[in-house]
Structures are given as C-alpha cells and as structure tokens.
Amino acid sequence: MTTETKPGVREVQADDIAAKVAELCQTATHVLPEDVVAGLKRAEQTEKSPLGKQVLIEILENVDIAKREMIPLCQDTGTTVVMVDIGQDVHIVGGDLHEAINRGVSKGYTEGYLRASMVAHPFSSRVNTKDNTPAVVHTEIVPGDEFRITVVPKGGGCENMSRLQIMLPSRGKEGITEVVLRTIEESGGNPCPPLVVGVGVGGSSEYCMLLAKKAITRPVGQQSDDPETAEFERELLTKVNALGVGPQAVGGSNTAIAVNIETYPTHITSLPVAVNLQCHSARSKSATL
C-alpha cells in the first residue's frame, strides 16, 4: 500500500533507522568521543598519584588500541540505551520504530562481535536474549523534520551505582552535594572512575532520572547554559575530586572528569535528585537521518 506524503512532512524509512542504529552500536563501542579523550588526557596531566597516573596512561592506551585494532573499548558493551529525537514533521514509514531499533541493535551486536548482556526476565530465569535486545528506548517529539538517534552503550558496573532521592526542598544545594558525594564515595572502584557524573535535579521521580541520564551524554567540558548551574557543576567537580577515590579507586586527584547537571522545574513540596554515573569509557554516538 502506498501512502501519499503530505506537504511539509518528511518520511524516514524504518530500514534506514535499523541500519543507522547498527552502525552507531559498532562505532560507539570502539571509538571514544574526542571530548571524553580530551578530559582523560587532562586528568592524566593533572593527576598527583603516580599509581593513578599510570592507570590513566593505560586507559588512554586502551582507547588507541580499541580504535586501531577494532577491539571493543570494554567487554561490557552495555545495555543499549537509544535516545531518539523525532521532529514533529517526520513520518516513519516501512515498519515499526521500536522493531527497527531492535533490529539495528541485533545486527550491530552480532556482526560487531559485541557482548550480549541482556537477560529476558529480570528476576526469574534470566536467560540471555543473545543479541543484546531489547534496547531501552527514549523518544522525544521535537520541532522540525529531523530524526536524531543517540546510542549510549551503558555498562552495568556504573549503572548499578545509580541513585534517586526525593529530598525536602529545604535541603537545597547542600543536600544535592551530599547525595552526589555519598553516591560516588560509596561506589568506590565499581563504576570505573574517573567518571562522568550525571545529575538530574527537579521534575518528577522518573523524569529526574532521565535528566541524569541525559546529563552523561553532554560533551565533557561543556557546561550548563545556566550560569548558576555551571558554577555548581565546577564546585561539585572539585568536591568530587577531593574525595581522593582516584582512577580505578587506587587513590588520586581525579575521581571525575565532569559533573553535568540537568534541571527541570519541580513541585512545591519536592527536591528530586538523581545521580547516574558513567565510567571513563563514556561511550555514545549520534547521527541524524
């Protein structure tokens, strides 16, 4: 059956979405974004602990080897988190969006020799689905006619250290600081520091955690547009690095290479705070169709 395209509506083929997702899965797991590499290099240059410095040198060496020899940066090629911004003037044709994304993940993980880490039932049989499907998909309708996909392979070690706390509004910045520092200190070496720390503040409980997840995909070194939030990010980064946890928790002056905060208005009674940690292998890759 053919459909007539209405003027002002752009068609995006499901097959093209699947092919692009497959490609992004492979690139994201082998090539670390430049901004992350720059952050790690800066950490290596400023690290005060000799052992911590050695760890950072080997982490940077790993980045080169992964890209050159096409060996995944990390054996945990993650839960495939896929963020899709769909322009409201886009019409997806030729299949179901979620099916297309999962077809892409399956192809990308199978043909790319990536590890399948998803189990079908979370508390019962836990049988591996063998191709890393299903992806965790977040869709957002945005103005325009672009279709933008971001693939974030999210490792279990850091994801398991996530935290959500709904605080009394009176706790303010001090309360947020306490939650962030406690989460990182208690996580120790488990999330593979130096980290990219994603912090969501505000919204509702589920939206707050999504803000934290979005925060980890912001380029390292790019601060919040809001001057007050940007200042809080710098303050928190210094405090996180004063914890002494260091690269791989061997002790050192670089526990994080960035603290990114995303905020949203919230209810008069609430101050939701979510922390989502991203390991030094802060993998993500975007493309526009």
């Binding site: 400023t46 005060k48 990010e233 690095n241 002494g244 928790a249 002790g251």
Partner: peptide
C-alpha cells in the same frame, strides 16, 4: 589507603 592519601587534593573543577 589510596583514598586517605589523596583526600582533599583535588584536580580543580575549572575545566
């Protein structure tokens, strides 16, 4: 031991 040795010696947050 590592955490104790490097506590309060942060790489600054002025990236």
């Amino acid at each position: 031991a590592g955490k104790e040795a490097y506590r309060d010696q942060p790489a600054l947050g002025d990236y």
